[in-house]
Amino acid sequence: MRTKAPTIDPIHLDGLTDADGLDIDAGASREAERYTGAELGGRDLTGISFSECEFRQLSLNDTKLRGASFSECIVTDLHAPVFSVPRSIWRDVRIEHSRLGSVEAYEATLRGVQIDGSKLDFVNLRSAHLTDVLLSNCIIEELDLGGATIQRLELRDCRIGTLDVTNAKLKDVDLRSSDFSAIRGIEGLRGATIDDAQLSQLAPLLAAHLGLRVE
């Protein structure tokens, strides 16, 4: 059986209204707006909902976005040394050319999400649910997928420092075109697809996991 690729639908945004973000509050519902250069750092936007919105050159450092919802949104040039979005919901979202430090997205739900050409330091997706997700041309220092449930994820041309898949449940996860320095929770790779070169790199970890002695 061939590994199924994620299904990423195109996002078309028309008739957007320019907004500065000064009047948005926690729990608000915003639709069809464009935010350019908005400074939302340090704000409490818990439970906010964005639908069919575009974000450009946005700063979200230390913004509280627990339980936030993003649907059919495009994000370009996002900057946040601390990006706090636990238990958030992302559906049909594209993030491009962004720089994120610590990403706290544990127990989040991602469906139809693409992150392209971005650099991320530490990404916490523990116990998250990912369906149809594509990470392309990204540099990630540590990607923590511990306990996550994942279906149709592709890491395309990415460079990953440490990948943690401890107790993860994977199906149709394609790792073939990416590089990894270290992998934790090797048993959690069940359901992933790798290539011959990656298998050679994983051989010492597999031997240690199985208790094999190579002489």
Rank of each mutant, 00 (worst) to 15 (best):
E54W: 00
T36R: 11
L175F: 03
S29G: 05
G101W: 00
L135I: 13
G147F: 00
E39T: 09
G191T: 14
A26E: 08
A108T: 11
D132G: 02
P86I: 02
I74L: 14
F122E: 12
G67F: 08
P86W: 00
L135E: 05
G146D: 07
C53A: 04
L135Q: 01
N124C: 11
H129L: 09
K169H: 15
T131A: 12
D92Y: 08
L22E: 15
L210H: 13
W90M: 10
R94V: 15
L189E: 08
L170F: 11
S49T: 09
L155E: 04
T7G: 07
L45C: 06
F83Q: 02
V165I: 12
I139R: 01
R176N: 04
R87E: 14
E39G: 11
L189I: 11
E107S: 10
R2G: 09
A148N: 03
L65F: 07
G161N: 06
F83E: 04
A19H: 07
K64A: 15
S88P: 00
E96R: 10
S49F: 00
L58D: 06
A207C: 10
A68R: 01
R213F: 12
E54K: 05
R94H: 14
R190S: 14
D179K: 12
K169S: 15
T76N: 12
D62W: 03
F180Q: 03
S98F: 03
S69F: 00
D157V: 04
G117N: 12
F180R: 03
S71C: 02
H97V: 04
V93G: 09
L13G: 11
L143Q: 06
T149E: 07
Q151K: 11
I139V: 05
E39Q: 15
V75E: 05
V113Y: 06
D44P: 04
A197V: 14
S127F: 04
S88W: 02
E154S: 15
E142L: 06
L40A: 04
V93Q: 08
D25T: 13
A38K: 04
D174C: 04
L110A: 11
S136A: 10
A68D: 01
G211V: 11
G117V: 00
F83K: 00
R56A: 07
I24M: 15
H209R: 09
L135R: 00
E187Q: 10
D23F: 07
A128K: 02
D18C: 06
D62P: 01
D164G: 10
E215D: 14
I183W: 01
V113A: 10
G27T: 06
R111F: 09
R66M: 12
D77W: 04
D44Q: 07
I160L: 06
L212W: 11
C73Q: 05
L199T: 15
G15Y: 05
S118G: 09
N167A: 14
G37D: 06
E104P: 00
G188Y: 06
D164C: 12
L212A: 14
L120T: 05
S59W: 00
S71T: 11
V214C: 07
A38L: 07
D195L: 08
I11G: 05
R152T: 12
